[in-house]
Computed example of a mutant assay.
Amino acid sequence: MTFYDEVGGQPTFDAIVDGFYAQIPDDDILGPMYPPEDMAGARDRLAWFLAQYWGGPQTFSEQRGHPRLRMRHAHFHVNRDAAIRWLELMKNSLDQIPETTLDDTHRAAMWEHMERVAAMLINRPD
């Protein structure tokens, strides 16, 4: 059984991503990075990526190829403030997932991954 299966599969990842994207339109740092006409596409890509990373379907690779996160985010202005805000919004979303779905061990593993990704994507000085 994969991490993906242990936390409830796609519905859990959809809930995390939906909670995150619900905050984006009103966010002063991240909101401008997401064109309204591509919000649904961005949402799908993040859900596919997280599901795939944690052992779920390979939809991201099938639809988009190798994740290449740094390359795909290179044209966005991702400084330390943006990375911190991404983590804040993601934490808000994770906090909405009940512990019966995402226990402390799984939550900690997911958070550690999110911290690594946020740090890795910084591509501009402060």
Rank of each mutant, 00 (worst) to 15 (best):
P32A: 04
A119S: 07
F13M: 10
G19P: 06
I29S: 03
L94H: 03
P36T: 13
E112H: 13
Q63P: 02
D38R: 14
T101W: 05
R72H: 05
I24F: 08
T2K: 04
F76A: 10
R116W: 08
A83T: 10
I16A: 05
R43W: 08
D5Y: 07
H77F: 12
Q10G: 09
D126R: 13
R80V: 13
Q10W: 15
A108Q: 15
G65T: 11
P25N: 10
M120Q: 11
E37L: 10
E6A: 15
I122R: 03
D28L: 10
L30E: 01
A108G: 09
M120E: 11
R68M: 12
D14Q: 12
D38W: 03
R43M: 04
T101Q: 15
M90L: 10
M120L: 13
A47H: 03
F20L: 14
N92K: 15
F13G: 06
G9H: 14
R107E: 05
M39A: 13
D26N: 14
E62S: 09
M71N: 01
R43E: 00
N123Y: 04
P36I: 00
H113S: 11
T2D: 14
R64K: 14
Q52R: 12
H66C: 07
R64S: 02
H75S: 07
D28A: 15
D18S: 14
H75N: 10
M114K: 00
F76T: 02
N92S: 13
G31Y: 11
S93N: 07
E115R: 15
H106W: 04
H73A: 00
A22N: 10
W111R: 09
M120D: 13
I122T: 06
R124Y: 08
S61Q: 12
D104A: 15
Q52C: 08
T100G: 14
L94Q: 04
D28F: 07
L89T: 09
V7P: 07
L46T: 06
L94P: 00
R68L: 11
P57T: 10
R72N: 02
E112W: 06
I29P: 01
E115S: 07
F13R: 01
Q23H: 12
R72T: 05
M110I: 11
D103S: 12
M90I: 00
D104R: 13
D126I: 11
R64T: 02
A109G: 14
T12N: 06
R43A: 01
R68K: 14
A119D: 08
L69D: 00
I84P: 00
L94E: 03
G9D: 09
A82E: 06
A118P: 01
P35Q: 09
D104E: 13
D38Y: 11
M114D: 03
L69P: 02
T100Y: 08
P57L: 07
L87I: 01
F20H: 02
D28T: 14
W48Y: 09
E37M: 05
Q52E: 15
L94G: 04
V78F: 07
D38S: 12
H77V: 09
A118I: 06
F60S: 04
